[in-house]
């Protein structure tokens, strides 16, 4: 299956993406990860105001098949979370790069973005895995 990874997204090894929007960063998980998980039934996200540390778990996504932790691609503070994904996880299933975003974060170390993969590198990583 071929996936379309938006060019302006940056990806972590653990399949989360970060997308810069002015001085904030939108976080979600990639379409590849969503496809691997299968039928998603539950998403657990931190409260607004929570401090995220890059590489640390910030929540979990649960499919019928499995539960996976999600790891923060950057450090920062949660300023908004996608409440509608909590109510209807199928939004994450159907549109992980759009309406199925998870958190909006005020980054504390913007340099960290440089350490993430670009869309091309991520696409080739998941193509071989």
């Amino acid at each position: 299956m071929a996936f379309n990874f938006p060019n302006h997204f940056r990806f972590a090894d653990s399949h989360e993406y970060a997308s810069v929007e002015d001085d904030l960063v939108r976080i979600g998980i990639s379409a590849f990860a969503v496809d691997q998980l299968g039928d998603i039934v539950f998403v657990d996200l931190p409260e607004v105001g929570t401090t995220l540390v890059r590489g640390n778990s910030f929540g979990s996504v649960e499919s019928v098949k499995a539960v996976e932790e999600m790891y923060s691609p950057i450090s920062g503070e949660v300023v908004q979370r996608n409440e509608s994904v909590l109510d209807s996880p199928e939004e994450l299933q159907n549109d992980p790069h759009g309406g199925g975003w998870l958190l909006l974060v005020k980054p504390s170390e913007t340099d960290q973005l440089q350490e993430l993969m670009d869309a091309e590198a991520y696409a080739s990583k998941v193509a071989v895995s």
Partner: peptide, 10 residues
């Protein structure tokens, strides 16, 4: 068991 909420008891 029926489990309240959407988290799965595995």
């Amino acid at each position: 068991l029926k489990v309240t909420g959407r988290a799965i008891a595995r």
